[in-house]
């Protein structure tokens, strides 16, 4: 086999993202199969309308068998009860609900829907404590997912 699995899969995903990007998503930087930067625009009619965010995807050689590392980067990290100010995102599909049928596009859709359903812009209550102790890689956090509706 010419290309390793993650490269084959990611080249297809990249092509698909470029041709049919989910609403509000654009590719900022995807020059290799290690790190991608995507833009995510807050959906019209939601608390995040008009805001622009940046997402970073880090892929390991076991992608898609293992989940990518996904976090918000840049100056504007969305203020949301499930998003820490260091960019870490509390979303089950990124961790223990990851399955290889997820794609970069499906993650973007999940994040877009997480933002769109938000009714109150605030940080997680344990934000200050968390960002002091968290590792750079959010996959090393032992997450507990309580409420998907916030």
């Amino acid at each position: 086999m010419a290309k390793p699995m993650f490269a084959r899969r990611l080249s297809k995903e990249l092509k698909d993202l470029a041709m049919n990007p989910p609403a509000g998503v654009d590719i900022i930087d995807a020059n290799d199969f290690k790190v991608w930067k995507l833009g995510l625009a807050g959906a019209p009619g939601t608390l995040y309308e008009g805001e622009k965010f940046q997402l970073e995807f880090n892929f390991g050689p076991n992608y898609p068998l293992e989940s990518p590392q996904v976090l918000f980067v840049g100056d504007n990290v969305p203020i949301h009860p499930h998003i820490y100010s260091n960019g870490h995102i509390c979303l089950d599909v990124l961790y223990n609900h990851w399955s290889p049928v997820q794609t970069v596009a499906s993650i973007c859709l999940s994040l877009q829907s997480m933002l769109s359903s938000c009714t109150s812009k605030e940080r997680p209550p344990d934000n200050a404590n968390y960002i002091k102790t968290a590792r750079a890689n959010p996959k090393h956090t032992a997450w507990a997912f309580h409420d998907d509706t916030v």
Binding site: P81, H82, C90, P124, P125, D126, Y130, T133, A134, R135, H140, T141, A142, W143, A144, F145, H146, D147, V150
Partner: peptide, 10 residues
């Protein structure tokens, strides 16, 4: 709402 434990890897 959510909590997390001390971030230690498995």
């Amino acid at each position: 709402m959510h909590e997390h434990q001390e971030p230690t890897p498995e």
